[in-house]
Amino acid sequence: MNYARPLAELIAELERLPGVGPKSAQRLAYHLLRVPNAEAERLADSIKAAKSALRFCERCQNISEHQLCPICSDPKRDPSKICVVAEPKDIQALERINEYHGLYHVLHGLMSPMDGIGPDQLKIKELLARFDSQLEEVILALNPTIEGDATSLYLARLLKPLGCKVTRLAHGMPVGGELDYADSATLLSALEYRREV
């Protein structure tokens, strides 16, 4: 199809976004052309502002506006616990349940040699630098995949000798799920990690 060049470029840029295919890119581009200038500029400005104003929190490596993110700078958070997650979005998930009041650490990925990701590509040195006398527990909240488990194993070997408790999230049945339709792997680990009632 012959698009005017700026339109073709816009579609090409949008197509590079995760989860956006050629059809959606085309729809988004036409939508942006139709909206008032002010609205399109607001989007452009917010992308620019986010890119220039955001960085990694010095402590937990979450995405942050300031040197320290709101969680790390909140005096009410419990500094004796650090919950290690793979991605910033995992923090949002854990914060939504409103039960955990410790600190976080974002690895920005999981170990996967097939994808060229080893320990050096993750924020592990930064995690080790956070060890101090008040730290009592590191909670590994990584995805229950092989890569998540291998990363947990790697971290546990590294962290335990430093003298703090290392725990990981339980694996098991989704709440409200039906046993008959659960996938076997989930059911197996739910059985393995069963507890007395």
């Binding site: 996967s112 040699p113 080893g118 092989i146 990363t151 194993l153 790697y154 070997r157």
Partner: peptide, 29 residues
């Protein structure tokens, strides 16, 4: 199978030995 693939990825096209700490999680699996 996945763990073997990951360990193989560490061994492939390298002329130096990956660190024991890096090999270990996959070998444990």
């Amino acid at each position: 199978k996945r763990a073997v693939e990951q360990r193989n990825a560490l061994l492939k096209e390298r002329d130096y030995m990956p660190s024991a700490a890096e090999m270990e999680p996959w070998e444990i699996e």
